[in-house]
Design a protein around this nucleic acid. Structure first.
Length: 426
RNA sequence: GGAGGGUUGGGAGAGUGGUUGAAUCCGCUUGCUUGGAAAGCAAGUAGACUCGAAAGGGUCUCGCGAGUUCGAAUCUCGCAUCCUCCGCCA
C-alpha cells in the first residue's frame, strides 16, 4: 500500500504512474485516488470542526447542569450542529472507504535496478551456476521416473481428492521429509533464522496484510462459512506475526525460516503443467522471511537470496539466478530474484524459489513498525521473503538431474545422511 | 459443546455517565547528585489523522463494531479473544 501523503505530491504521483505502466498495470487509478484524497481532507476537516464544537458545547452543558442552571438553549444548538455533523461524517467515511479500497489494489513500485519490460522475456539472467548433467540416454521427466519407481502416485490422488494432488510413497516421501529437515537445519544453524511452524490457516486480515487480498482472492482456498483460508505460502502467517506491533530498532532484523504446506487453487492455470509435481494444489515449502530496517533491505535481499541458493549448491543442482523485469514481478514486490533449477527431463529451467523485497508495502498494510533508536517517530519496517526452497520442486529436480539410464536415481551426497545413508533409489 | 469470569497506556493496576487520553506503582529517557555507581531528587515518557510558516490547536483511539445520551473507559446489544470448571478429543 502506498503512503496517503504521496497523493498530494504531483511529481511523485507521475513517477508512480510511470512505474505502474512499466508493470503493465493501468495508471488511471491514480486520477480517482488523487481526487478522493482531496475530498477526504475537505470532508474530514469539516466534520472535525463540527465535532470540536459539539464537544465544547457538551462540556458547557455539563458545567451548567452541575451548577443547577438551565442548559436548554445550548442543547438546542447541539441538536442543530449534530444534524450537520452526521452528514459531514457520512461523507468523510464514504470517501475514506472508497479511497482505502482503491489503495489496496495499487501494486508496489519497482526498484530502479529492475529491468523494464512487459513480459518474462525481459527478465535478466544474473548468473548461471553449475553445469547441466550430460546423459547418454534421453532424460525422463520426474513423473515417469517416480511412477516407474512406484514412489509417486497421481492416479490414486485423483481418486481420493482430485486433479493436481499426489501421493508420495517410500523413498519420495522420505526425500520430501529429508529435504525439509535439511533446509530447516541449514537456515536455522548456518543462516541464523529462527525456526517457525506457523498456522496453516489464516484470516482475511492477514491475507490483506501481505497483499493477496483483495485482488487475488480466487487464488486462495476458502473454508466455507468461516473467515478462514488455507495459506498459499507461509509468508502470510509469518509476516503478519508482527501485525499491529511496534518493534524496537534494536530487535531488527528479525528473521524466520518457516516450514508449511502451501495451498493454491491455481485459478486461471488450467492446462498448464497438468502432469507431475510442478503445479499442485498442495506443496511443501520452507520460507525465509526477514523484517529489517529500511536502510538495509536491499542488502538483506541479496543475503536472503544467497541463503536459498545455498541449498541448491549443497544439493549440486544446476540453476540460474534471474532478476525479474517490471512486468513479471509480483504485486507487492519492488525487486525479485527467481532461482530457476535446471530440469533435464523438461529440458528447461523452472522456478524453484522466488525472493522478494517488499520495502514497506506489506508493513504499511499490516501495520508493522519499529521505534528508531534516536527516539524519532515509529517507522514502517521493510519485509522480505523467499522460498528456501519449494520442496516438491526440489524433489522433481533431484529425480531429473540424478536419474540413471536404468531408471534408478542417485541421492545427492548432502541428503544421504538425512535418508538413512541411502545412496540411491531403485 | 456447556457454565462462569476477564480484556484499560511498555508492564502491573485504579477508575461505573461530565476538564479521565486516563490515578498510582514499576520500567524507560534526560538532568541534578557521585571519583564512578546505587539510592535519592526533578522533568519527561502512545499513536494515527488534521489545521498552522512556527508557536500552538483540533479529531479519533480504554479488545472490535453498533446503539442510548447534550456528554460513554463507564450503560445496552453483537462479535473477537483470553482464563477457569465440566464434557469430548490427537
Amino acid at each position: 500500500m502506498i503512503d496517503l501523503k504521496l497523493l498530494e505530491k504531483p511529481e511523485l504521483v507521475e513517477e508512480y504512474k510511470k512505474a505502474l505502466t512499466n508493470r503493465g498495470a493501468s495508471p488511471d487509478i491514480f486520477n480517482r485516488a488523487v481526487d478522493l484524497a482531496q475530498h477526504r481532507k475537505t470532508f474530514l476537516t469539516k466534520a472535525e470542526t463540527e465535532k470540536a464544537r459539539l464537544n465544547k458545547l457538551s462540556a458547557e452543558i455539563g458545567n451548567l447542569k452541575r451548577n443547577g442552571q438551565d442548559a436548554s438553549e445550548l442543547m438546542q444548538e447541539v441538536e442543530r450542529i449534530k444534524q450537520q455533523f452526521k452528514i459531514s461524517e457520512e461523507d468523510a467515511v464514504r470517501v475514506e472507504t472508497e479511497l482505502h479500497s482503491l489503495l489496496l489494489v495499487i501494486p508496489n513500485k519497482p526498484h530502479s535496478s529492475v529491468p523494464v519490460g512487459p513480459t518474462e522475456k525481459e527478465n535478466k539472467i544474473v548468473q548461471s551456476i553449475g553445469a547441466a548433467p550430460k546423459f547418454s540416454f534421453k532424460a525422463k521427466e520426474h513423473f515417469d521416473i517416480g511412477e516407474k519407481l512406484n514412489i509417486i502416485d497421481f492416479d490414486r490422488a485423483a481418486k481420493t481428492t482430485g486433479a493436481r494432488f499426489g501421493f508420495l510413497k517410500g523413498a519420495a516421501a522420505q526425500m520430501e521429509r529429508a529435504l525439509i529437515q535439511l533446509m530447516m537445519d541449514v537456515h536455522s544453524t548456518q543462516h541464523a533464522y529462527t525456526e517457525m511452524i506457523p498456522p496453516f490457516i489464516v484470516n482475511s486480515k492477514s491475507l490483506t496484510g501481505t497483499g493477496q487480498f483483495p485482488k487475488f482472492k480466487e487464488d486462495v482456498f476458502h473454508l466455507e462459512n468461516t473467515d478462514y483460508y488455507l495459506i498459499p505460502t507461509a509468508e502470510v502467517p509469518v509476516t503478519n506475526y508482527f501485525a499491529d506491533e511496534t518493534l524496537s530498532e534494536a530487535d531488527l532484523p528479525k528473521s524466520f525460516c518457516a516450514y508449511s504446506p502451501c495451498f493454491r487453487s491455481e485459478a486461471g492455470s488450467h492446462g498448464k503443467d497438468t502432469k507431475g509435481l510442478i503445479r499442485q494444489h498442495q506443496f511443501n515449502k520452507v520460507e525465509l522471511m526477514t523484517f529489517c530496517h529500511p536502510n538495509l533491505s536491499y542488502e538483506v535481499h541479496e543475503q536472503l537470496t544467497s541463503h536459498a541458493e545455498k541449498i541448491l549448491s549443497m544439493l549440486e543442482l544446476p540453476y540460474r539466478k534471474m532478476l525479474l523485469c517490471t512486468g513479471d514481478m509480483g504485486f507487492g514486490s519492488t525487486k525479485t530474484y527467481d532461482l530457476e533449477v535446471w530440469l533435464p527431463g523438461q529440458n528447461t529451467y523452472r522456478e524453484i524459489s522466488s525472493c522478494s523485497n517488499f520495502e514497506d508495502f506489506q508493513a504499511r498494510r499490516a501495520n508493522i513498525r519499529f521505534k528508531p533508536k534516536d527516539g524519532g517517530k515509529p517507522q514502517f519496517v521493510h519485509t522480505l521473503n523467499g522460498s528456501g526452497l519449494a520442496v516438491g520442486r526440489t524433489v522433481v529436480a533431484i529425480l531429473e538431474n540424478y536419474q540413471r539410464e536404468d531408471g534408478s536415481v542417485v541421492i545427492p551426497k548432502a541428503l544421504q545422511s538425512y535418508m538413512g545413508n541411502k545412496t540411491e533409489i531403485r
